[in-house]
């Protein structure tokens, strides 16, 4: 059936290696810089791997502030994920099960909201946070993150829910279950892959968010990781070693979470997107 299975296999492995190289070369450089002593990143010609690898940068990077930033990021991201997914699921359910002109109109507005440039709305939102006395609190960031991730989350989950068979819901309805019970006992369990997919998407977006985090937190103990990176960037220079060490430390937990959730995420997104 196949002409030259061995040659084909070799070509595939070569392609696999090329993809891995495309991804890993910059990452390798990042790890390499993170292991170099302070002045070595700037050697000419650039050295691929440090002469005397050192963990100095990691020790410097893992300072108390880093742990605070990490905790802040974790709290804000996870809470945002939980709230966004909850709200989006409920809304997406209504969007996928209602055929009303006004509801379609609302859906268009939800998609449009995704297009707002954040730099243009940040000062008005700041004023609202200020009025609510929420600056320098987790709440300000969580509210902002939930708002900006909701549109895509609704969109993803709506596509997913549209693909679910409705016969079960109808059967439950006929058996006398109210809409809340149908939602809780039929829809939510069936939608689990979609929920996980959306959750991972929201997690990645909020984990990296910069502009809101910068604006709404001024005290050092409320900063999140991406903003904390600025500690290494001065008016006149960047401390590359420590910055790259911090970056490696930041990416590890997300990759780990991803590795575990990969299976669900993949299944979830497709189901949503196919029926989009």
């Amino acid at each position: 059936m196949r002409r030259a299975p061995l040659a084909r296999k070799a070509a595939l492995v070569a392609a696999e290696l090329a993809v891995a190289a495309f991804v890993l070369v910059p990452f390798f450089w990042m790890v390499s810089v993170s292991l170099k002593p302070p002045d070595e990143p700037f050697a000419i010609p650039a050295r691929l791997w440090p002469q005397d690898p050192t963990f100095e940068n990691y020790i410097a990077a893992f300072r108390p502030e880093f742990r605070t930033y990490f905790l802040n990021s974790l709290v804000v991201s996870l809470t945002s994920v939980a709230i966004t997914v909850g709200l989006a699921l409920v809304a997406a359910y209504a969007f996928s099960r209602t055929k009303l002109l006004i509801v379609s109109g609302l859906l268009a507005l939800v998609v449009l909201a995704q297009m707002f440039p954040h730099a243009a709305i940040i000062i008005p939102i700041y004023k609202m946070m200020r009025a609510g006395d929420l600056l320098n609190t987790y709440a300000s960031l969580i509210i902002a993150y939930v708002s900006v991730t909701l549109p895509v989350a609704i969109w993803m989950l709506r596509g997913f829910l549209k693909g679910l068979p409705q016969s079960l819901e109808e059967a439950a309805s006929i058996d006398g279950a109210g809409p809340f019970r149908v939602f809780r006992e039929i829809v939510v369990p069936l939608a689990r892959p979609g929920i996980i997919a959306t959750a991972v998407y929201v997690l990645i977006v909020t984990w990296q968010e910069f502009l809101f985090a910068l604006s709404f937190t001024s005290t050092r103990d409320m900063r999140t990781l991406p903003v904390g990176m600025n500690d290494f960037i001065g008016q006149y220079g960047i401390r590359y070693g420590e910055l790259m060490a911090s970056s490696v430390l930041i990416s590890i937990p997300v990759v780990a979470v991803f590795y575990v959730l990969q299976r669900y995420f993949v299944a979830g997104i497709t189901a949503g997107a196919v029926k989009g």
């Binding site: 946070m129 910068l214 005290t219 600025n230 960037i233």
Partner: peptide, 19 residues
Amino acid sequence: TTIPYPEYQQRLLTAVQGG
């Protein structure tokens, strides 16, 4: 409160505008 230079201008401006 010490603020890294790259974000100082935006922080001040936002704070002043936001009262």
